[in-house]
Amino acid sequence: MRYAAPTTVDEAVGLLAADADARVFAGATDLIPQIRSGRPEPSVLVDLKRIDRLVGVGESGGTWTVGAATPTSTLTADEAFTGAFPGLSEASGLIGSDQIQNRSSWGGNLCNASPAADSVPALVANAVRAVVAGSNGERTVPVEEIVTGPGQTSLADDEFVVEFQVDTPPAHTADAYLRLIPRTEMDIAVVGAAVRLTMDGGTCTAATVALGAVAPTVVRVPDAEAALVGSTLDDATLEAVAAAASAACNPIDDKRGTIEYRRQVAGVLAKRAATIAAERANA
């Protein structure tokens, strides 16, 4: 296993194109445990953190750009970013301990393609786009098109995510992310729920609901979104949101939770996240 620390995107693409077993990494917070547990080692480890473009967060002309290897602690510490995307910020802040937060990144969290990745439901709820670089140049795709299944992405061998783009939310729009873990910290989500709402005088005018850890990939819940739009988030609406979220799940039984548990709690978290997002949007 050889380590390489390219300083440009082209250099990194070149390393990937030259060796099919090369692998990019940012925090390695998943990669190192995977290698320790016996996954085959990549031939070349391509460290993306020395490429300037991959580290940083900023807003310009109504679009936020987040480098794919930016430590999530940078995002949670950025007051302007957190003000614009409170749910996305809190989801980013839930990826592991403070130690992990200084290593983990959206790029890694997304491309590791774990169904339980905390940032991904919030990325989807905010319609975040990924800018992907490869031998054929760059392309921009919605994040939900990156992950195709557990551990599987649509990226070619010579491609990696360079940065993320997300539009500044319209007025009275806010997001929220909740997850269920057995402890208070240091766990992988058993269920995650991201909700983004636009409110107009107490009535919801736009809604996105995305669930994590309840299916092979992040699940959008159109029935919950439909129930929210036009509502004032009264109890009946919230129960409808919960029912729709539970119905949208396609979970598995594993060491972290049962099918029944994930279904039930997905509904609980969806309705709670919707309530928080509405409060934020109304504020």
Binding site: Y3, A5, G27, A28, K49, N102, R103
Partner: peptide, 15 residues
């Protein structure tokens, strides 16, 4: 690492 808290076990030495 540059003042930020890290787990040394999650870093490759050349980093």
């Amino acid at each position: 690492v540059d003042g930020a808290l890290n787990c040394a076990c999650l870093m490759f030495a050349p980093e």
